[in-house]
Design a protein around this nucleic acid. Structure first.
Length: 755
DNA sequence: AAGATAACTGTTTTT
DNA sequence: CAGTTATCTT
């Protein structure tokens, strides 16, 4: 007994000291702060996540708080997951009871627990941005106003802005006809959402805020419970999120919680979507922060990179101020390349990547960053031709795919019949002969009676309940749809989540529909994947109900695409790169109008945000940083002539090394990679399927090079011709090689042997 | 109800 | 230029 006690005691100490080992003084100070609110200014690569997670582990390990008393909030699901994994790795105890999640996720959680007090139906559904826009379009249409006069996107922007400012439709200040109209749409939208039992993203926050605001007892309950609130990326919070935090912390009255926020004003790059850096200054004041802890030691980059970034960011005003430093050496100079064209820039990057790769740097440790997504095209083209594997981030996500949204719409209707958005999406998909006129009738009835569409449909066409699913099929049109849903709802009552999904896929006709479609294979695969998603959800989530799964689908859109296991180059915008690091970083398109972007150039705030973005991009690099710009660039079908970015001039000369453009008229270079130089792009879009752009199938040519011919290539080995194109010296063939896949080859250069 | 053509529109993004 | 969306055909 005694021994085990001592053993346990010793264990805790050992664990505690290993927890706090290798921390620098500032990190240690932040982690071991007493029960008080704190503002940690954490520079890029300064171990921010480590501080946050270790702080939590420390608080629990030292017995200051139980997991039950901790609430940690992040912006992305990825960050929340990472945090939880790291905490669990540090602690021997069960972390259940701890609330770790995104603002939206946590608000959803509270609203689910107190749906009645919040005035929501139990099965309330969450609208994503696209759903919200669809809803707004519907309202504008029924109000009879033109899309031209009131663009739906603008209305959406207005509504979300108001909500993020904490304002309801009735509270919006109307000082002219325009805002009066907007407020009117907002009100109509609010009422529709209420009727249908749906909430949009900002509504989750606002509703939760109002819930705590109005219900003192409940608010007190959470205040008392969460004695420690920790916030990641605090510089990205908007007004409403800040107010929510203050409420939860119990400021006004007793100030019961300690709020520990970590952020970096220099990395605030989301002002355009409502993030308010001022929150950091408000926090300092509202929470009586006497001293800000600055984490300035950087564990990521070499000195030259940091100094360049430091000098750049010093051009911004109103900073808290901080200078990153490293105990590692200066490292290499930044490499700058002045390209003649965007194409030239891309081939320069390709050459450098090849060299780096040859030197042993993994492709996944190299990032190509750009300001806007459109810039990836030229790069992709060159990379493809060079046969370099790459991965583009920021495409369509799993739960946003058309077929998945259709499937989810069926599930949502099973859970919540009043969801008109969902109904409209699939009432005639797969087609069941419900045209615009019957839909209009239905909407009229619903409008007159104040019913939801599915109630209207049931009352109009429903009749007695149908027992066998067969009768659902025999009925036509709306009546068929009504009994289909009825039957589905009945059947699903007894099934587990994965079974519900399977059942729905089979009986909705979605599977049959996509089996018929030519390009449907990938969609079918995705629908199958939805069953898998449901299965793993049941295994992982505490609440495995359909409603919980639907929330999950809305709040976590899923990884961008199935991650290829292959070592691949990383292509992404500077925004997406935030939080990541790479051995080498290529920062391309450093031109006035592009970076800084022309839309941000005119006002100081915009320019400073662009500069922060540049700062974020630069500090992604560990060892080597390339900066490049092109004198001319193809944009929107026009060649634009740009001057180099002012940001380049803000970096000290002695930290940069200007690379000379290499003469590329070398014959051996030209000859040896001719296949690649002239190969045609096959760009795999992030959407379903393998859509090709850039060429059309041509008739096969006469002669020995024809479709179906087996060939042998010196480098690529055996393959078969699957496409022919062009005449004379332009003649090229597309070959599917056994080993290296598809390639376009110029016949003049590629030495092909017919087999 | 699917397929074809015309018109439009171009930052950054998570929930 | 290229990708999406609205509109017009068959």
């Amino acid at each position: 007994m005694k021994i085990s006690l001592w053993g346990g005691y010793f264990d805790i100490h050992k664990r505690m000291s290993s927890l706090l080992a290798d921390l620098n003084p500032e990190q240690l100070e932040a982690i071991t702060l007493p029960h008080q609110s704190a503002l940690i200014l954490a520079g890029a690569g300064s171990g921010k996540t480590r501080v946050l997670t270790t702080r939590i582990a420390y608080l629990i390990q030292s017995g200051q708080v139980s997991p039950h008393g901790i609430l940690a909030v992040t912006f992305t699901n990825k960050a929340a997951r990472e945090m939880l994994t790291r905490i669990t790795a540090m602690l021997p105890i069960n972390t259940r009871g701890m609330w770790v999640g995104t603002f939206h996720g946590l608000c959803n959680r509270m609203l689910r627990s107190h749906y009645q007090e919040a005035g929501l139906p139990q099965a309330f559904q969450i609208l994503d941005t696209a759903d919200q826009l669809a809803m707004i379009k519907r309202i504008l249409k029924s109000s009879g106003v033109s899309d031209k006069e009131f663009p739906p996107r603008q209305v959406q922007w207005f509504i979300n802005n108001a909500k993020e400012g904490g304002l309801r439709a009735s509270q919006v200040e109307t000082y002219d006809q325009f805002t009066r109209n907007m407020a009117e749409f907002y009100l109509a939208y609010e009422q529709r959402c209420y009727k249908e039992g749906v909430v949009d993203f900002p509504e989750l926050l606002l509703r939760c805020y109002e819930l705590l605001m109005r219900n003192e007892i409940l608010c007190k309950h959470y205040c008392d419970r969460f004695s420690h609130i920790l916030v990641d990326e605090f510089q990205d919070t908007n007004q409403l999120q800040y107010r929510w935090l203050k409420l939860l912390a119990g400021t006004g009255s007793s100030m019961c919680s300690a709020v520990f926020v970590v952020g970096d004003d220099d990395q605030s790059i989301y002002a355009f979507r409502g993030a308010d850096t001022e929150n950091m200054k408000h926090f300092e004041h509202d929470f009586n922060i006497s001293h800000i802890i600055k984490l300035e030691q950087n564990y990521r980059s070499h000195g030259n990179i940091l100094n360049a970034a430091n000098t750049l960011i010093q051009n911004n005003s109103g900073r808290f101020g901080k200078n990153l430093w490293t105990s590692e050496g200066h490292g290499e100079a930044l490499r700058v390349y002045n390209a003649a064209t965007d194409f030239d820039e891309a081939s320069f990057i390709v050459d450098e990547v090849k060299t780096l790769h040859a030197e042993g740097i993994e492709l996944s440790q190299i990032a190509l960053l750009y300001r806007s997504n459109a810039q990836s095209r030229v790069l992709e083209h060159s990379l493809f031709n060079a046969s370099l594997p790459y991965r583009v981030y920021g495409g369509m996500r799993f739960f946003e795919r058309q077929e998945i949204k259709h499937a989810l719409a069926y599930l949502r209707l099973i859970a919540n019949p009043d969801d008109d958005n969902a109904l409209l999406r699939i009432i005639n998909f797969p087609t069941r002969g419900i045209g615009p006129r019957s839909l209009e009738q239905l909407q009229d009835t619903a409008g007159q009676q104040g019913w939801s569409l599915s109630t209207a449909a049931a009352n109009k066409y429903g009749g007695e309940a149908v027992s066998a699913e067969e009768s659902a099929k025999t009925k036509k049109g709306v009546a068929g749809f009504v009994s289909l849903l009825q039957v589905m709802r009945q059947d699903c009552a007894e099934l587990t989540l994965p079974e519900i999904v399977k059942h729905m896929l089979a009986h909705s006709g979605l599977i049959a529909h996509y089996q018929k479609e030519r390009e449907g294979a990938d969609r079918l695969e995705n629908l199958n994947e939805l069953i898998n998603a449901a299965t793993s959800f049941v295994h992982e989530a505490e609440d495995d109900s359909l409603i919980a799964f639907l929330s999950h689908a809305s709040l976590e859109a899923g990884e961008h695409q199935a991650g290829t296991d292959q070592d691949a180059l990383q292509l992404m915008t500077a925004h997406s790169a935030k939080g990541l690091e790479f051995h080498s970083v290529f920062l391309s398109g450093l031109e006035e109008g592009l970076f800084p972007h022309e839309n941000s150039r005119d006002d100081d705030n915009g320019l400073e945000e662009e500069r922060r973005l540049m700062y974020v991009a630069m500090t992604r690099a560990r060892r080597r940083l390339y900066l490049s710009f092109a004198q001319s660039r193809m944009l929107h079908g026009q060649t634009r002539y740009n001057v180099r970015s002012r940001f380049l001039d803000e970096i000290p000369d002695n930290l940069m090394k200007w690379l000379q453009p290499v003469q590329k008229m070398d014959v051996s270079y030209f000859g040896s990679s001719a296949e690649n130089q002239f190969a045609k792009p096959v760009r795999q879009t992030s959407d379903y399927g393998k859509r090709r752009t850039g060429f059309v199938n041509q008739k096969s040519q006469a002669g020995q090079w024809r479709v179906g011919q087996n060939v042998l290539h010196a480098k690529f080995g055996a393959g078969v011709i699957i496409n022919c194109e062009g005449q004379g010296s332009d003649a090229r063939v597309q070959v599917r090689f056994d080993r290296v896949g598809m390639k376009w080859l110029l016949l003049e250069f590629a030495k092909l042997t017919p087999v």
